[in-house]
Amino acid sequence: MYKALNLKEFVSQDTFNILYDEQQKATAVLIPVRHWHSAKAAELQNLMEQLTYMPVFECSLKELEERLRPEIQNVEAENIRVGLYNVYESAGNQEHRNHVIREYRDHRDLVKVNATTGESQIVSSRF
C-alpha cells in the first residue's frame, strides 16, 4: 500500500514521516525544519542512507557501473601513473572484433588477440 502524506497536516506535526512505494520500500523521509539541527545531522544522514542503500546484488548492471565508475577511474589513473596500461575494447567496429586498445601514458596500441591461445600482436601504435 502506498503511503501518502498531506503536507498541510505535516507542517503542524512534530515528527518526521517515512513515505513508502507500492512494494513497501521506503522512498522518502520528511523531517520538519525545527528538527534539523547540526548535532542531529549525522544521525539523520545515517538513517537516510540506511533507507536508500541498495545492496550490490540488487543493482542493475547500469547502477553497478555507476557505483563502480569512480573506483575504476582511480585504478586507471594509478595504472598510468606507475607506467602500466589500461585495456579497452575496440567498440562498435566489427572489423576489429578480436582487437583491444592498450592505452599508455603517451600512446595507444591496437592489439589483435587470439581468443583461443591468448596470444597478442600489436597491429598499430600511436593511432
Rank of each mutant, 00 (worst) to 15 (best):
H37W: 02
R126Y: 08
A115N: 04
A115R: 07
I31T: 14
W36M: 15
H107P: 00
V100G: 00
N74T: 13
N6F: 02
Y104R: 02
V123F: 09
K25A: 05
N17W: 02
G118L: 09
E89N: 10
R108P: 00
E119R: 08
A4F: 14
L51K: 00
A39N: 11
L51G: 08
S60A: 09
R81H: 12
L68K: 10
G92I: 01
N98Q: 11
M54P: 00
K3D: 13
W36E: 12
R69A: 15
A41D: 03
A4R: 04
K8R: 05
L51E: 07
S125A: 06
M48D: 07
Q94I: 04
A4N: 08
Y104H: 06
T117E: 02
L19I: 09
S60D: 05
A77C: 08
P32E: 11
F10A: 14
G92H: 02
L61D: 15
K62C: 14
R81Q: 15
K40L: 09
E22F: 04
V100P: 07
A28E: 11
R67F: 14
H35F: 06
R67P: 07
Q23E: 12
K3A: 10
H96C: 06
T15I: 13
D21A: 02
Y20M: 13
Y104C: 03
I122R: 02
I101H: 04
I80N: 12
V87M: 09
H37F: 05
Y53K: 04
T52S: 13
F16C: 09
S120A: 08
E95T: 09
F57L: 08
R108D: 06
R67Q: 15
D14A: 01
A77H: 11
Y88L: 04
N93D: 15
I18R: 06
T116V: 12
Q23M: 04
N114F: 04
E95L: 09
A91P: 03
L84I: 04
I80R: 15
G83W: 07
Q73N: 15
E119M: 07
P70I: 15
H37C: 05
E63T: 13
V82S: 06
Q121S: 07
T117K: 08
K112N: 01
V100S: 05
N46E: 11
A91R: 03
N17T: 10
L44P: 04
Q24K: 11
N86P: 03
E43A: 10
